[in-house]
Amino acid sequence: MEAAIDLKTQYRHAVLPKTVSDEASRQEFVKSLKLHLASKVAPGNRLAYEARAGKAYAAATGSAPANYHEIRKAMADDPYFRFWSALQRNSQEMMWNAVQVPVQRSLDTLIDVGRTEGDAGGTLTLNPDMEIPRYHRMVDIHCMPGGYHTDFAQNDVANGAVYDRAVYLYAMGRMGPFNSDIGDTTIAYLKQNFPDLKPRRILDMGCTVGHSTLPYCDAYPEAEVYGIDVGAPVLRYAHARAQDLGQKVHFSQQNAEHTNFDDGFFDLIVSHILVHETSHKAMRNIMREAHRLLSPGGVVIHAETPPYRALEAFDAFMLDWDTRNNNEPYWGASHEIVSADIARETGFDPAKAFEGMQTSVFDAAEAERTKVFQGGDFGGAGMWYVWGAQK
């Protein structure tokens, strides 16, 4: 009889780095610190705003802050906000350090495991000549050293391994044992809103290590599943992980702005937290490419945290923290997107654009969510914003 999977512990597949006691304790400390900051320290920012910063701004300008931009100006020099912000940034850097140590210690073993082929039947195609987009080369997104694309060794899987464990810590264990919450939740939205969709082929754009890719293998068992990313190390890791978990996925190193797939090849195109890591221009190129790749009636859907227009101004300010403090330069602009407008710009019928909030499929299994959207508390609200269009 197969043992039950612990929903609050990351699943130990073959390529996940093993930790010794001190390493595991350090990682657990970072996870606990992040939860403490999100649940106990972050709420003090609203008190500081209401009691001090908002009033000071109104006295200086003659009116209260009208939007999240003005709230940011009001809070910029507030000592409590600066205190929380510094702790939040430090927790992020501590997280990367904590996961890098066991990866570095065991990298040769991880590379060997990564090169072992399983029986799942998936494929991996890399392109060493592919140009990494400038918007990834110029900044380590979310402070991850080397980003998704940097190789530190031959056949490297290091940053795949680092990302896999870090996502679990960053989300404080609230995205399920496979870190698959966003994919599972997006699938729930698709099943509810596009019940007749029977995709033959599915593409996950910006798949990284396949956290949200693999759920589509089970949700649509008759479909061929493909995943693309710009990073070779994360794709090597994704392929090894999928093989070990018995899931057949075809991974390839490609830029989602322009792929080598044929016109109309896919019936479903998905992305999970890709949008906020691409530039204004790139996002529109990606949607144009999605339009080219989709068959008639096919669907493209992106999952993110909610647009700022859906939040009250102070909550939008708190969620915007990542834009300036977590190496997420495109975060803010991505949260201003209106799905119908993007559809109109990129070849889709705006009348067939959609958006919505979907409750996390793991929400009922977790008791430690803050139930708010705020910087440094990824997934803490227990909901994901999905938007897209049907061709």
Rank of each mutant, 00 (worst) to 15 (best):
D78C: 05
G206M: 03
D320P: 03
F317A: 13
V167N: 11
L37W: 06
G118Q: 06
K31E: 12
E93P: 05
G382T: 04
A232G: 05
I132S: 06
K371V: 01
A171C: 14
Y11N: 04
V372W: 14
D322C: 11
K248H: 00
A86V: 07
Y216K: 00
K191H: 13
D204A: 13
S252C: 03
E304F: 11
N90T: 08
A188L: 01
R72S: 15
V338Y: 05
H211N: 15
R201N: 14
T370G: 13
H250V: 01
I342A: 12
K34W: 08
A74D: 08
M138I: 15
A343E: 12
V41M: 02
V270T: 15
T150V: 07
A353Y: 07
A282M: 08
W331V: 07
V300S: 01
G347C: 04
N327G: 03
L124C: 02
Y216F: 15
G356Q: 10
M130E: 12
I342N: 06
E289D: 11
N327L: 03
G44H: 13
T259M: 02
H136N: 04
A256Y: 10
P221F: 04
A38W: 00
A158T: 06
W321I: 02
A351E: 13
S212T: 14
M287P: 03
R134D: 11
E70Y: 06
P43V: 01
V361T: 15
D184K: 15
A14N: 11
A367V: 06
Y80N: 07
K281R: 10
N159A: 02
A367N: 12
H36K: 08
H142W: 10
R369S: 06
D244Y: 10
S279T: 14
Y308G: 04
H272C: 15
T259H: 01
L190C: 09
H211R: 03
T61G: 12
R284H: 11
P102Q: 04
A153M: 05
A4L: 12
D181Q: 11
K198L: 10
G382I: 01
G382W: 02
R201L: 08
R52L: 10
H302R: 06
S279G: 11
W96I: 01
M95N: 14
D108C: 05
V299G: 12
K352H: 14
E70N: 08
V299R: 12
A38H: 03
M94K: 09
G347P: 00
G375M: 03
F348R: 01
K391D: 10
G297A: 07
I273N: 10
G298A: 05
V167Q: 11
F83E: 09
P329I: 00
H276L: 10
G121I: 02
N67C: 12
D320K: 04
Q254T: 00
E28L: 10
E366R: 12
P296W: 02
N127D: 15
G297D: 06
L268I: 05
A161T: 01
K281D: 14
A42Y: 08
D129S: 13
V99M: 00
Q92L: 11
G298M: 01
F265P: 01
G160V: 06
A351Y: 04
Y216N: 02
V270R: 00
M130H: 08
I337L: 10
R52N: 10
L319W: 03
P102C: 05
G376N: 07
D156L: 08
F178I: 03
H291A: 07
M205E: 08
D140P: 01
H291E: 09
V300D: 00
Y189T: 09
